[in-house]
């Protein structure tokens, strides 16, 4: 049974237990002054599938991302990644354990070339330690391997022609591609994508959609925040909806799209019909 088929038996209720959870979140809260930005009682993310995280602006999706990936601290609660505690760990240690995120506003390293952006992300590089860095023979073979892998990914993401350009000269869409390709250099088991489609033109959007489903098909878990409902409904295997910091619904895309609480959260409690456009 594939991980996706395993989801078929899961109840579409908030906090539902999954057959093979990759990420388990318990009672995580984050307050900003008097405002509770995140208040997640229980959430499990199934391994090897694409989970879409939706919710109106200010629902706490990005804050939850920041907390889970160590970029912000939780006021309380704990979470486990791959069965091991991940709460309170610094971002770089979580990344090394295979939980890698991208950012809503892309963060390419402008004054590094595209290739350097990629090579930077490889883990366990001997030459990144101060002493060995001075002695090229200690790391040159590894560097060559890293470069080959980077070139493969750049070709796959159609950035090979930009290889030696400064990343700061890439277009917005190319930056999105580079960020995703760079995250892959870490060889993550769980990829968290924060609005991967924001500001991307329709042609490139198709590319990015393909890359996201490729991630799943390569056995990785994907959790992504997205506002574009077409995208969410098309590629997600499971959808989680947040509003005002809480998880108000989760389930297969179609079930969430028709969920009363979700429609209320997006449109307010007075409404006629759901306005989700048809998935492709």
């Amino acid at each position: 049974m594939t991980p996706r088929e395993a989801l078929a038996g899961v109840a579409a209720v908030p906090g539902a237990a999954k057959p093979d959870p990759h990420l388990v979140v318990d009672a995580v809260r984050r307050d900003f002054g008097g405002m509770r930005a995140v208040d997640v009682e229980h959430l499990e993310v199934q391994r090897g599938v694409i989970t879409g995280l939706i919710g109106p602006n200010g629902a706490g999706k990005t804050t939850l991302f920041n907390v889970l990936t160590g970029f912000d601290r939780a006021d309380s609660g704990h979470w486990a990644f791959d069965g091991r505690n991940a709460s309170g760990l610094p971002a770089h240690r979580l990344a090394r354990r295979g939980m890698v995120r991208t950012f809503q506003l892309t963060r390419v390293l402008s004054r590094l070339t595209v290739l350097e952006n990629m090579k930077l992300a490889a883990v366990g590089q001997r030459g990144e330690r101060f002493g060995p860095a001075l002695l090229r023979p200690l790391w040159s073979a590894q560097e060559a391997r890293v470069e080959r892998h980077a070139d493969e990914l750049l070709t796959r993401f159609r950035l090979a022609a930009k290889r030696d350009d400064y990343a700061g000269y890439l277009s917005g869409g190319q930056r999105k591609l580079l960020e995703m390709a760079r995250a892959l250099m870490v060889d993550p088991a769980l990829v968290l994508l924060d609005e991967p489609m924001a500001g991307v033109n329709p042609a490139l959007r198709q590319d990015l959609l393909g890359h996201i489903t490729d991630l799943r098909d390569a056995g990785r878990t994907v959790l992504f925040v997205e506002h574009d409902m077409d995208v969410v409904m098309t590629i997600s295997d499971w959808v989680v909806c947040m509003a005002e910091g809480r998880i108000i619904a989760e389930g297969p895309p179609a079930a969430v799209a028709g969920n009363r609480a979700v429609i209320d959260a997006y449109l307010g409690s007075r409404h006629d019909e759901p306005e989700f456009r048809e998935g492709r």
Binding site: T69, H92, A95, R111, N117, K119, E128, L134
Partner: peptide, 25 residues
């Protein structure tokens, strides 16, 4: 020697955007 090594690459990357570097482990 240092700036042409992976070590130097990390330093230059930190100069550009430390959050991104942190996210890469």
């Amino acid at each position: 020697l240092l700036v042409h090594s992976p070590w130097g690459r990390v330093l230059r990357a930190i100069r550009e955007d430390e959050e991104a570097v942190r996210s890469l482990g």
